[in-house]
């Protein structure tokens, strides 16, 4: 599934969200949906451990990750979701990060 998921990311069908999880920007097949869900489950499990280790709420840790992924892991042409709930496609300019990213 990794190949299919990478392709979906590259084509902007799925993308990183400000809340630290991957989201579905455009309608995708069942396999891609399952792959995104499986990825998010693994992220949530890892975030749960990290949040406890850093003594913060799970959502806070997840949001911190979200800032980093938006800041430097979204390539031009790929989709991303800001807290306003609007999916955008990254162009050459850097993403306008949510306020709490600092």
């Amino acid at each position: 599934q990794d190949a299919a998921l990478s392709a979906a990311i590259a084509s902007g069908q799925v993308g990183e969200q400000a809340d630290g999880y991957m989201g579905i920007a455009k309608p995708v097949g069942g396999d891609i949906r399952s792959a995104v869900e499986a990825l998010n489950i693994k992220r949530r499990a890892a975030y749960t451990d990290q949040a406890a280790k850093h003594g913060v709420a799970l959502r806070e840790w997840a949001a911190t990750i979200g800032c980093q992924t938006l800041r430097n892991r979204v390539k031009p042409g790929q989709a991303y979701l800001l807290p306003d709930g609007v999916w955008r496609v990254k162009d050459a300019s850097p993403i306008a990060l949510p306020g709490n990213c600092g």
Binding site: T48, A52, K53, G55, A57, L58, E60
Partner: peptide
């Protein structure tokens, strides 16, 4: 109020280095 992500297993320790 936030619900701290509490893990009640042995891994519930604060990593000093972090």
């Amino acid at each position: 109020a936030p619900f701290r992500g509490l893990v009640s297993t042995a891994s519930n320790f604060i990593d000093p280095t972090a």
